[in-house]
Amino acid sequence: MNFFRLTADLMHLLSIFVLLLKIQKTRSCSGISFKTQLLYAVVFVTRYLDLLKWISLYNTLMKIFFIASSIYILYLMKIKFRATYDPSQDTFRIEFLLGACLLLALVFNYTFTFIEVLWTFSIYLEAVAILPQLFMLSRTGEAETITTHYLFALGAYRGLYLLNWIWRFYTEHHIDWIVWVAGAIQTALYSDFFYIYYKKVLHGQKFELP
């Protein structure tokens, strides 16, 4: 564990709490892509099939939290606050993402086993899981400030993981190409968002696309 990785994980936790706060406070999931949240649930379930493998208490508790919270968010969006979800805004085709990631995982993996291919699939899928949300944002052209805080925390978590990998490369000679490439793509997807967040939200303005 190092500073960057711990901070990254905490930003990831924070992003989920901000999302839960947004839904509970406004009693609405408007502006949130159900498809992105569904993809995250798939990511956590397929990645943490090794839940029973002991790495550390931290590792196990975080895995349980990520699986449980992602499913709880699906429950909030699909059942509790269903009326506030507008599917006509959430039109990104996730079938292509799922198919492409599965295909890539079958071809580019470390070991061709069931658990390992699904782990790889989850890494690729996480890289693109934010696309339906960003697509929704670009369609509506604006977002509630708290929703942008959620996206910022999520993007910061990914950016900090890049720093963690650089750190681990120099201190432990840790190399993980699959995670690096997927992580770099994932972080790059946030660049436009970061720019507008910095220009508008941090200066007290509403998040609106130019």
């Binding site: 470390y110 070991t111 782990w119 699959i178």
Partner: peptide, 10 residues
């Protein structure tokens, strides 16, 4: 090194 043994990141 076998990468499959050290998926220690979340």
């Amino acid at each position: 090194k076998d990468k499959t043994k050290d998926h220690d990141e979340l």
